Computed example of a mutant assay.
Amino acid sequence: MSRVPRVRRVRGARPPRLPRGIPLRTIAPNAVTAAALCSGLTAIRFAMDAKWEQAVVMVLIAAVLDGIDGKVARLMRGESRFGAELDSLSDAIAFGVAPALILYLWSLQNLGNFGWMVALVYALFCVLRLARFNAGIDNEDQPHKSAGFLTGVPAPAGALLAMAPLYLWLSTQEPHLPMPYIVAPWTVLVALLMISSIATFTPAVRLKQRIRFEVLVILAALIAALISAPWPTLTAIAVAYLATIPFSIRSYRRVRLQRAAASVRPDEPAVPGAP
């Protein structure tokens, strides 16, 4: 029988201590992310009770919380891998599962198994987009990100776009809007936009020490419109965002051509028609 060699311990040496818990500075941003996840789950609960307005509001609250958790983390220097993973899980629930179930319970269930398949496709494509983002988060070669664009429609914007027929129905009470033959193609279109490779404008805004007075006026008008007439305003926002996609594609193409032209050395002739 072979003898197992004994490990000789150095006198006075202490075994390395394993890290316990997470840093205190990461508690606040992770709490904001957890609140966004809870908002998404609460939206599902309201949808199960056919309280469509409350369900949409909870998804909107989750979108607001998702927009500020990263800023809180950077402000407190609380970025962590744990927070990034938690953020993706929260986004999958709040912007993938919740809108899919809301649309299914509101309209798509009238299509039976096909309606459930459409809801599954939307939730799955949202999760695939998040997985693609996480897989490439450490890649240095990210043409869209380096140019100030996103790849495809982000998950929060996708959720807001997917529920646009619901906004329109809440504002007009048009009986034909909940028809699944209208909602199903729209839901699939938004799902395809999320996993697409098209360049979209980033919603991130860099705050400066001084901002123009016009920006304050626009923000005040937008907040007033959301309070006084939320559903028409959300419908207009969804349509406006969708209308920016052709412009973002053209803007990114212009940036790509400028970079390609700048990469050509002066002593090398440019090839006509080269991208």
Rank of each mutant, 00 (worst) to 15 (best):
I27K: 00
S171F: 06
M58I: 00
L65T: 03
F149V: 07
L128R: 02
S39K: 04
T202I: 05
P180V: 04
I68Y: 04
P230Y: 02
Y252Q: 10
A43I: 09
V271I: 15
A162Q: 04
A34G: 13
N30F: 05
L160T: 00
G136E: 07
M194C: 11
R254S: 13
L105E: 11
V118N: 04
A238V: 06
L41R: 04
C38E: 00
L37C: 11
L130A: 05
G115P: 13
A36P: 05
L166G: 01
M179D: 15
G273I: 12
Y252K: 07
F149S: 03
L177F: 13
I93M: 15
A31Q: 01
V10S: 14
F201I: 05
P143M: 08
T26R: 04
E174T: 07
A55I: 01
E79W: 01
W116I: 05
G21L: 05
S171L: 04
R25I: 00
M179H: 15
P232C: 07
V215S: 09
P185R: 06
S107Y: 07
L89C: 12
V215T: 14
D87T: 08
A260H: 14
T202R: 10
G21T: 02
L24P: 03
F95I: 04
L89T: 02
A204Y: 08
A260I: 02
T200V: 11
I249R: 15
A220W: 11
L24Y: 06
P16E: 04
L207N: 01
Q54M: 15
P99I: 05
L226T: 01
T42A: 15
L257E: 13
L128E: 00
P99L: 09
A159Q: 03
D66R: 08
R3C: 05
M76H: 10
P246R: 09
A34S: 14
P165E: 10
A131S: 10
I22A: 15
L60V: 10
S197M: 12
P230C: 08
D49M: 12
M48V: 13
V255G: 03
G70F: 09
V205A: 03
H144T: 02
I182M: 10
Y167G: 02
V153G: 03
A243R: 00
L24K: 10
F247V: 08
M1A: 12
P266T: 03
Y181H: 08
F201C: 03
